[in-house]
Design a protein around this nucleic acid. Structure first.
Lengths: 229, 229
DNA sequence: CATAAAACATTAAAAATTTCATGTTTGAGA
DNA sequence: TCTCAAACATGAAATTTTTAATGTTTTATG
């Protein structure tokens, strides 16, 4: 990670915040924030660490990673910029439940959690807005977990491809920055299963895979697979 | 469901709220609240409905139930009184993601969501507290999902038994109000699997089952099963 | 109290999924 | 550019889990 400009940008965050808090309060947040650049694979915030900062993801893609005692990973969700991360960590005083890891090169702004809390206490409508943002993210992971809990592998992988297209890459054709192994950690199945399923779907012309470029060719069929699980 | 006393009790909720809001604000909440009694199996709040109320569970046990298109149920979590439910619904304006269903006879107080929001906006520390309560609940379901996602059936069922003892019944021996089918819906596996696993554990003297009374006999072994997954 | 429905239970067969073994391709760093 | 590790790929064996078939027990209700 490299320290960059001393004065963060906050463009998207400033725009949505300005309806709720004063310039003075925003300056307070800005002054105590640091902008950092993380390379693909680097850990932005570590599971088990103290939630001293809230992460504003300005650019890039991040995975929420949970590592268990036997070093097996589970990806809870994947999000793309611009977004405020750490909804769970934000108001939760315990150690971080999971890590944030850059899936692509990221620009993030670390906001001092204490200062943010001060501002939230002074601006209840701003606090409510932040809660809502956090709840949205919560909802997304819950929906993924539900898919995971009572669909079979194909339905789960279909859900993930659809989710990536709709929420992360905003396109039915995208440069997949996740490895097969990571998709497996997201779907809660073995790597081989992901590889086999993707190959199968390619021969069935549901998707096409060319190097790292994945394109959904038959979104209706994919949605059908998701539906029947 | 039967309408009971016109004036709700709120005892636990009043005690924790009193540090944050005025008596006047509390009265405002109280006046617009209704106390209801739900019998085992009754739905307190329905999936898909509008989040017009926040539920204060005064007495009883409630399951968070998600029903999919093919009428398969998934239990997200189970909680016991006293507790504020609907953390996700509270700040989330969309339709309810899941239902609250009484697992035992329950006494609940339905708080008008609009009025509560007014009070929250006026009392940011109270809002922060409420969000923290919601986050705690979020954490519990996430931990269950994680267990679900990369443990095998036995590890998952062990996790559920341990969770019920520690968080719901507060005892290693308890009157199990869930059916095997419900445990299966919580563990994300088939009913037969739950039945077999419980029988097996009984012969291995890890638990004892006598009618509806379940007792953990060897908590270390159960924790070991949970750990190795 | 009778009776039907739901819950509980057990087993074998079928299906899904993982593990393992092996090999090729790709990509990052010396 | 060479080299090594990781990613990608495939198939078969082993394992886990579900489904189905069947029967007993418990519980709720007329």
């Amino acid at each position: 990670m490299t320290i960059n400009e001393p004065r963060p940008e906050f463009s998207w965050f400033r725009r949505i915040s300005s309806q709720f808090i004063s310039d003075k309060d925003f300056d307070k947040l800005e002054k105590t924030s640091v902008k950092l650049i993380f390379k693909k694979g680097e850990t932005i915030l570590k599971q088990g660490g103290l939630p001293t900062h809230v992460v504003y993801l300005e650019k890039g893609i991040v995975k929420f990673n949970y590592e268990n005692e036997s070093s097996k990973n589970l990806i809870l969700t994947i999000v793309s910029a611009p977004k405020i991360l750490g909804g769970a960590n934000l108001f939760y005083k315990d150690n971080n439940l999971f890590s944030f890891i850059a899936v692509e090169d990221c620009e993030v702004i670390l906001i001092d959690a204490k200062v943010l809390e001060e501002v939230l206490v002074e601006n209840s409508r701003f606090a409510m807005m932040m809660f809502q943002v956090a709840s949205e993210m919560f909802k997304k992971s819950v929906m993924n977990f539900i898919s995971l809990a009572h669909k079979q592998k194909e339905g789960r992988i279909a859900d993930i491809i659809l989710y990536l297209a709709a929420e992360v890459y905003n396109d039915t054709s995208f440069h997949l920055s996740l490895t097969r192994k990571e998709i497996a950690e997201f779907a809660g199945c073995s790597t081989e299963n992901v590889i086999m399923t993707l190959s199968k779907w390619q021969t069935e012309k549901i998707i096409s895979v060319d190097g790292k470029i994945l394109a959904i060719k038959d979104i209706d069929k994919l949605k059908y697979i998701s539906k029947i699980g």
